[in-house]
């Protein structure tokens, strides 16, 4: 399956706008708005995260645009993964982790007690740093999500979902003859695309990716990056990356984290070429990191 790539609507030259002038008045974050307005359904406001006594995130507020890729960058330990895991409440699985502030999806706070975390995670899928296919067949890996959520009424329907997901993840041609073989037998890049297919099979609205290419070789990385670029037309994607090049290649907006604070956010172009904040400049030029 091929998807034609429309012209990037962030390509227009930006007029750098300082946060105090045009940015919304929350947080200390330096913000540069998009020239083209985007829909925003996912918003984080004043998010603090604590692991026990240790605070990992400080007052993070961030809007995630629809049908675009937002990349989170920053030196290791800066809180970007922590923020990512807040978005589908994967932090719940860590004992003594506490989140305050609010993250809203379609206006509903995902930390509201009335919200069902199972439902939230079916809307917000996740792809992990290391490919983690289940020790089951390729087919069963992809069918897992639809099965547990009861998405298919028949075997044929389930098969359709699996095939469509594998196609969308660009893996179909490679595995169509090996559907019954274990998913762990695929190559690293294929495994990661299998994990993406597994996430897509649930038809999420948001896909979180935690350094999805860090365990892969450059060729596999290129394939995945291309795939992410295709997927952004269909899903809202947040990607954590340690590589500024990767952020430049796949994302439209970028947020820079440092020591648990969101230092600057804006169009990728701006953050990487004309950073406004001093810390961002230092990071981009390699002085910190």
């Amino acid at each position: 399956m091929t998807v034609s790539i429309p012209p990037d609507n962030t390509g227009a030259p930006h007029a750098p706008v300082s946060a105090s002038a045009a940015g919304p008045a929350y947080g200390e974050t330096v913000r540069t708005p998009d020239t083209v307005p985007r829909d925003v359904r996912l918003r984080a406001r004043h998010v603090d995260v604590f692991y026990g006594d240790k605070q990992a995130l400080f007052d993070v507020s961030l809007d995630i645009p629809e049908k675009a890729v937002t990349s989170l960058i920053g030196p290791s330990g800066c809180g970007k993964t922590t923020f990512l895991r807040c978005v589908n409440r994967m932090n719940d699985t860590i004992e003594d982790c506490r989140v305050t502030g609010e993250i809203t999806l379609d206006g509903q706070n995902i930390y509201d007690p009335s919200l069902d975390v199972v439902e939230l995670r079916s809307r917000v899928g996740m792809v992990f740093q290391k490919p983690n296919p289940f020790p089951k067949s390729v087919y069963e890996n992809v069918a897992y999500g639809p099965r547990i959520h009861g998405l298919a009424r028949s075997r044929a329907e389930l098969e359709d979902i699996v095939v469509a997901s594998l196609r969308r993840a660009g893996l179909w041609e490679e595995v169509k003859d090996r559907l019954r073989e274990p998913g762990t037998g695929l190559s690293g890049g294929q495994q990661q695309r299998l994990c993406i297919a597994r996430a897509i099979a649930v038809s999420p609205e948001v896909i979180l990716m935690d350094e999805p290419c860090s365990a892969l070789d450059p060729i596999a990385t290129a394939v995945i990056e291309e795939l992410i670029d295709e997927l952004r037309l269909l899903y809202t994607i947040i990607i954590v990356t340690h590589s500024m090049q990767q952020a430049a290649r796949v994302s439209q907006r970028t947020a820079f984290f440092h020591l648990g604070r969101l230092v600057e956010e804006g169009p990728t172009e701006v953050i990487l070429r004309h950073p406004q904040a001093k810390k961002t400049q230092d990071y981009i030029t390699g002085r910190i990191g």
Binding site: V118, E119, R123, G150
Partner: peptide, 9 residues
């Protein structure tokens, strides 16, 4: 699809 998924879930 997302709508249907929501209903199923």
């Amino acid at each position: 699809l997302a709508n249907r998924r929501r209903l199923c879930v």
